[in-house]
Design a protein around this nucleic acid. Structure first.
Lengths: 133, 133
DNA sequence: CTTGACTCTCCAGTGCACTGGATGCTTTAC
DNA sequence: GTAAAGCATCCAGTGCACTGGAGAGTCAAG
């Protein structure tokens, strides 16, 4: 299967597939006499795996580690589990941060309803934000 | 005030201050005969404003716009308000995304408690993740 | 007067994940 | 046979916000 078909089936740009190969997320593809890459059909599945992992917040570096385990013949389960746990914690932490920011933003937007531009002091940049400091 | 003192008072690295000046987040500082930057004390306040804005998720590009309003003599209130609203909506959207990812990760971690490595199929990379696709 | 701390500019690199463009060979369709 | 589509490599750029280092000038203390 040539790169264009893989790209279409997996829904990943051609450039990206070559990039994945370059950084080791995909193994180097076999070549046709023409020099064209010749992929196994399984690579489509692997690309979906990569995209699914990305959607969960794993980095390409982590994904490369996972597929390296598999390509060495080991089941990556324990490593994957560790990554997933870590990533879940990061998620939770990030959500907490964003909630705080959201609340602060909400309070600011709310407060602005009660302010008139004339109340702006001449000093500083914008007391809407800087009073927050 | 020289750059080192500003850096210390505002808690911002020297390099970063020069960078802010370069991209227009800070106005170009006056210079001493030696060539050293000579800052007004107010720049410390402005740096705090920049950091507070960043903490709310505004980009340096947006912050530059805000201070540009102020430096042209206009109160940036309306513009700031628009940014804040937009940013709040982005925040909410991102939180929703992360919640989904968190739930998926949680389900995966949970499920892994009931799987043994022996159950791993030989094909694919890791069915823990790829079944999710 | 020397040493060390401070500052200057300029260039380049980081991290992450791509993306674009130039240039040229190969394959496919008509 | 020719034109278009597909593929190849290589280099370089994107966006964001810095960060590091080289090489050189300046200032304060002893």
């Amino acid at each position: 299967m040539r790169i264009g078909e893989v790209a279409e089936r997996a829904g990943v740009p051609i450039k990206t597939i070559r990039y994945y190969e370059e950084i080791g997320v995909l193994a180097s593809a076999r070549r046709l006499p023409s020099g064209y890459r010749d992929f196994e059909p399984e690579v489509v599945e692997r690309l979906r795996f990569v995209r699914a992992s990305q959607a969960l917040g794993l980095t390409l570096g982590e994904i490369r580690e996972i597929v390296a385990y598999r390509d060495h013949g080991d089941a990556p389960c324990a490593y994957v589990l560790e990554l997933l746990r870590h990533r879940r914690d990061q998620c939770a932490a990030r959500i907490a941060e964003l909630r705080l920011a959201e609340q602060a933003l909400d309070a600011l937007v709310e407060r602005s309803a009660h302010l008139r531009p004339e109340d702006c002091p001449a000093t500083g940049v914008c007391h809407l934000i800087s009073r927050e400091a």
